[in-house]
Design a binder for these strands. Structure first.
Lengths: 94, 94
DNA sequence: TAAAGTAGTTTATTTTATAAACAAAAAAAT
DNA sequence: ATTTTTTTGTTTATAAAATAAACTACTTTA
């Protein structure tokens, strides 16, 4: 009847992060914070969860002397997002 | 950028309940439990929340001597559901 | 060199979702 | 007739999640 909604994606902030990453090759921490309007702390936690699930990669490097965190969606993440949208449709079909 | 997702609807079970009620004039507790696959306890709690938000009405009557709980979606609920779907689309637009 | 900004992480708090336990009556079985 | 099971739920307890607040460490600016 109703498909299960992947709990990792069923969160406004994590879904927003995935939505942003879906449209770009990569995005850094600050960009994601701006796009999502999240606090840094919340974003940090949610990025960890997405990374642990293998939905995104998180790479820490330096831009000059400042730390920089670059995120990218993985193929697994893309699949999970598509599955989540498909599952949602079982709830909101007309 | 991203619209806020009504926290009352951003829950698999409450969304499923709303989805069922959207398609019928009314539905009783047992029917909703069957359709959603939820436990009675969980369903009871979530119906209360939806009722307190004014998204559904919950009417308790008797069918013979057995208690019966009948739920219906309100106009407010219908609007909230539509708004939730519209907000979702800001996350999953292609 | 002191203050403020950048880029985050860690910890704590509040909410939420969910299941487990309970209740009260009816129906069925022995 | 009385024990057991089923129905129809509610209440309570627990586990998980979301979020914000506090903190760290380093850099830039006044």
């Amino acid at each position: 009847m109703f498909s299960e909604l992947d709990p990792l994606l069923h969160s406004a902030l994590r879904l927003a992060v995935m939505s942003v990453l879906l449209g770009v090759e990569s995005a850094d921490f600050v960009f994601l914070r701006e796009q999502t309007g999240a606090t840094a702390g919340n974003l940090s936690v949610q990025l960890d969860k997405l990374a642990k699930a293998g939905y995104i990669t998180v790479e820490k490097c330096f831009r000059g002397k400042m730390p920089r965190t670059v995120c990218r969606m993985t193929a697994t993440g893309r699949d999970a997002f598509a599955a989540y949208v498909a599952a949602l449709e079982t709830y909101i079909r007309k």
